[in-house]
Design a binder for these strands. Sequence first.
DNA 1: GCCGCAA
DNA 2: TTGCGGCAACGCTCC
DNA 3: GGAGCG
Length: 420
Amino acid sequence: MICGFADRQGVPGEIGSLLLGVNEDGQLRYAGSVGTGWDSKTAAAIRARLAKLTTDAAPFPPASMGGSRWGPARTGAPRWVKPCLVAEVEFAEWTPSNQVRQASFKALRSETPASEVHKEAVRVEAGATLAALKITHPERVIDPTTGITKLDLVRYYESVADWMLPHLAVRPVALLRAPDGIGGEAFFQKHAETTKLPGWTEHPASLWPGHGRLLTVDSADALIGAAQLNVVEFHTWNSTTVDLTHPDRIIFDLDPGEGVSWQHVQEAALLVQTLLGELGLAAWLKTSGGKGLHVVVPVAPEFDYDVVKAFSRAAVQHLAKTLPQRFVAKSGPSNRKGKVFVDYLRNGIAQTTAAAFSARARPGMGVSMPVAWDQLPQLKSAYQWTVRNAREYLSFRTNDPWCDFWSTTQSLRGPMEHLS
DNA sequence: GCCGCAA
DNA sequence: TTGCGGCAACGCTCC
DNA sequence: GGAGCG
């Protein structure tokens, strides 16, 4: 939060430094200041914007601003502003007194509600280790509707690598590559026969006899290397390479037919969760980045694909039977008008679904974002988060809504009896 | 984007 | 040397 | 049986 500013010495009308605050236990706390990162024009523009927000009341006790040898006392008296503007500030680390060190201003962030600005969890920047990877044509526009470039996509995957890799690393993948950008011709790749792939793991043919050698993307290097090869979407199996034939999750892909309102999709997701809850299964929610939502159920890997798929089909058929005005279980486009098709076919062997944090190769480049169930009513669309705005959202997010997903092991035994 | 193959 | 095609795969639905 | 689809 921008809580105040000092004028640039000798240059009236320009910002010299910004005084920053973060939310902590429901109130603002001083977080240091930033005095570089802008040019004269920007400094003047920010100064003009802040002038309208000045106030006499300090947002936190000036005494709490001790701590720093290089505090604002050096740069003249601070002018307080109402804390309603958010700045994105890059910095090396938090000092022992919880202030930013080597801060540099990046941009104003008007979209972030003030209440959501917290101290960002400390995460090591992956950037340094990745610098070795050469990105060709970084400025090439891959999505003409937004101007998103190849470098934007690379940077997106770089920034979500820590979040994404747990979803990706242990599962065979299908990669959707789009060398000619969104709207151009794209193709799937699941084997590495010819192309030598940067850091990807190629599993022995014995893992899945009679088929091509399976591939996993299990490091940040592999992730970025994939982006260099114009991989836009990462799709994963429902089982891991540890136990390929026994799925450890079920996915219900909620796919709205023509003419279905977003509210209808939200309600459908809630109904799916309710049914699963009645069967004794906890489920997690993510946006698909495209049109619909994904409901993901972790299960113990104790049954093979045929059993798990039959269960998911039964669950969807139950929904379609009891709520025929909302749901269809058939995949054809004809009977889907005005209804939500819950795609259970993703639960067969070798079937894949766009992974959490995968971007989508469609205009706008939405991403699949894990969310909490209590966020569902506030969701604006399945592509609310994109390659462009996901990083900011994640940096201000204070806890992982899928935290318990990883430790949940639930058997299908009871739910299967319950349903039949 | 890149490789292998044919022209 | 240049050009060009491949780069997944399955079940389901409808015709 | 085959095209189309996700």
